[in-house]
Computed example of a mutant assay.
Amino acid sequence: MPTPQENDQNYNSCICDGCPSYPGNDKKLYCARGKSDKKIVMEGCICPAGCPVYAEHKLKDMYYCINGKAR
Rank of each mutant, 00 (worst) to 15 (best):
M62R: 13
A49D: 14
A55E: 11
I15P: 01
I66C: 14
G24R: 11
A32M: 06
I46P: 03
C51G: 08
S13Y: 11
G50R: 00
D61H: 14
G24C: 05
E56I: 03
C14S: 04
Y64E: 03
E6Y: 13
Y54I: 03
D37M: 11
E6K: 12
R71H: 15
N67Q: 14
R33S: 11
C19V: 02
K58L: 10
E6A: 14
Y54T: 04
C45Y: 00
G50Y: 01
A32L: 06
Y30E: 03
I40P: 02
P23W: 04
K28I: 10
K58Y: 09
Y30R: 00
C47V: 02
P48C: 01
L29I: 05
D61E: 15
N7Y: 04
N25M: 08
Q9N: 07
N25K: 14
Y11R: 12
P20T: 00
H57I: 11
P52A: 01
L59D: 06
P23T: 03
C51L: 03
C51W: 02
K58D: 13
P2T: 13
G68N: 03
M62A: 15
D17G: 15
S21L: 00
K39A: 10
I66R: 09
E6T: 12
C14E: 03
K27R: 11
Q5E: 12
G24F: 07
P23A: 14
M62F: 14
N67D: 12
Q9R: 14
P2C: 15
Y63S: 02
H57V: 08
D37R: 12
Y30C: 12
I15Y: 02
Q9S: 11
K35M: 09
G44R: 01
C45A: 06
D26M: 02
Y30W: 11
